[in-house]
Design a protein around this nucleic acid. Structure first.
Lengths: 361, 361
DNA sequence: TTGTATGCGTTATCAC
DNA sequence: GTGATAACGCATACAA
């Protein structure tokens, strides 16, 4: 016969109240207290006494204990490369709004585009401190795939994933997106369309470069290595790349630039402003992601929306449905891109030049 | 005598392994297994067997169960109004880096500048799903104060707090910050210095307006109601307010503008760009917060740094020290502001105009 | 309807 | 050094 060695928590303690505190104060068992607190069957009398007791001591259930019992935390994780990039902020807001509807909170991780950090995160997932995760990796390694296979908690990948990988996946169609941009610029009569890419060794970088080259062929323009710049997906790269492009001799200078994201496009635009290069008269500009930054700039930047918010919503919904039913087959959703034409690429160059000269002189 | 009705978890289950799984596989008690896994005293033999078993089944401790036992979650919360504002991103990154050092993760809440949402958050804090929270409210109500008093988990307030409120508090000195901006603009010979404020019914808004008026007096300039605009702390307000200010008759137009934050300043700058108003020649511009946006703009925007990153670091450190010792007396730290002069306000207007005209023609 | 007792997965205490 | 077991705070199957 085992005897209890420790006494249960005493009633009148200065510490945080638990169910026992409430139950003792109400003069009922903790089971009854718990039932009342969770709105289950109970007599009106006890219900009243329990509620009164709970209110009196300011009882609030402990989320951790509840999580342990329920085997769920009510937390979703979101892991993105760069929390400073507005496109991720947008996605985050979208995910959060869906998550909130289902009483989930969002835990945000910034991986700094570091694959090792992403892997560490996937590994820690086994600790089950969240119920599921949205991961938006810049590149997928074998390590990622095996970690995904091992993971006991559902993960939705936002971004490209190998065809056969059996995971929930929502992706943008940046190939079509780049094509939209190039066709648009070509339709304006631009002949020397440059491309400022991000990191070529990332999936988006590689994809967008290939799409750019394919689109050039499609519209019947020759490719020119000197018109392609690669670096990272940041503002500073946009500035320096734009400077390099415009430093070329007159006949080889681009008359249009497609950028791999809005941060780069914004950088390029500021460089043009600094150099007195007119947009879109001298050079037309199209960005990608259609973030707030594109609308905040002057002139406003045309941009290809890759549906960040929509991808976020879908990712969250996939996650919630998988939590509800883990046996679901892997799903793959693709959000179509959309070109938003703004001042940075509107109108034909020749037609615009006189009008703008007049206005600014 | 109570008999166990349910069997303990069987060893060979397809489910996630627990300590019992490992212990059974290693042929030791769960106590020994736990000790080995936590690096406590154990014989080399058992240690080896436990580690081998753990590796074999891929054991990872459950963070929730561990939290319940340890009575700590390893999570810090950060609640800010607007996750889209770069100044909060900066603060978040700073807090996260300190938190990570101490093995804490950051849970970010966006309150949308809604006091009710902030209060709800403070209330949920009693659920103890985080160990502590950094709250940056735009205004402090009595509800906030009483919720803070009730809160069983430590909260650090970033922002102004009533003198007598006994809570850890780190604040910017935006009064001095505004004074720095006004003195700077006045020293450039500007006579009609406007102020584009955010929401006047917020603490920062009210403080900065008062500071603006005081600073004007200090530098011997008359106040002019027509030179003060109020709205919110967003980009769009900056644009419309700037447009209104510049629509005044020639003699009453401002020759300098101080903005309550960088988002507003950036909006104003884009409006000037759109209208062909030269910065700083026609109007000098100073923002506040010294965010990345100020450096990304062209011309780069002078800005008063209120030390967002530093405030974040201090807030995190206050939190960690309070978690370590809850009996500490309330502390109050103030981060001094710093004016960063950039092109948007550099040089005297008359001296600069010819030079810039030449360059841009 | 209500109370008793067990388990969620972990760590810590205590006796051996 | 090791094993049995209480406890963290909660929810619930089962018995009364």
């Amino acid at each position: 016969v085992a005897r209890k060695r420790l006494q249960p928590t005493s009633v009148a303690t200065g510490a945080v109240p638990t169910v026992r505190t409430v139950a003792a104060l109400a003069g009922v068992s903790i089971a009854s207290a718990s039932r009342v607190l969770n709105g289950l069957q109970a007599s009106t009398a006890t219900a009243a006494r329990v509620r009164e007791a709970a209110a009196k001591v300011g009882y609030v259930p402990n989320a951790i204990a509840r999580s342990l019992q329920a085997r769920k935390t009510g937390l979703l994780a979101l892991a993105v490369a760069d929390i400073g990039n507005p496109v991720y902020v947008e996605m985050m807001a979208a995910i959060e709004s869906v998550a909130k509807q289902a009483d989930y909170q969002l835990l945000v991780h910034a991986t700094g585009a570091d694959p090792a950090a992403e892997l560490a995160l996937l590994g820690r997932l086994a600790q089950r401190y969240v119920d599921a995760m949205v991961l938006s990796p810049l590149r997928i390694t074998d390590g990622h795939l095996s970690a995904l296979h091992r993971s006991p908690v559902p993960v939705v990948i936002v971004g490209q994933l190998p065809q056969e990988a059996p995971f929930d996946n929502v992706r943008a169609d940046s190939t079509t997106g780049v094509a939209l941009a190039i066709r648009h610029l070509a339709s304006l009569g631009r002949k020397r369309i440059a491309f400022i890419n991000g990191a070529t060794d990332t999936v988006p970088g590689a994809t967008r470069l290939a799409a750019y080259l394919a689109a050039l062929t499609e519209v019947g323009l020759p490719a020119d290595d000197g018109l392609v710049e690669a670096g990272d997906f940041q503002y500073a790269h946009g500035r320096t790349a734009a400077a390099r492009l415009m430093a070329r001799s007159a006949g080889r200078r681009p008359d249009a630039i497609c950028c791999a994201n809005d941060l780069i496009a914004f950088g390029a635009l500021q460089e043009f402003l600094a150099r007195g290069i007119r947009v879109p008269d001298d050079v037309a500009l199209v960005g990608m992601d259609d973030t707030a930054l594109a609308q905040m700039a002057f002139p406003q930047i045309s941009s290809v929306s890759l549906g960040a918010a929509k991808r976020g919503v879908i990712a969250a919904e996939l996650l919630l449905s998988r939590i509800a039913d883990p046996t679901l087959p892997p799903r793959r959703e693709t959000v179509p891109p959309e070109l938003v034409v703004r001042a940075s690429s509107a109108g034909a160059p020749a037609a615009r030049i006189p009008a703008r000269r007049k206005a600014s002189s």
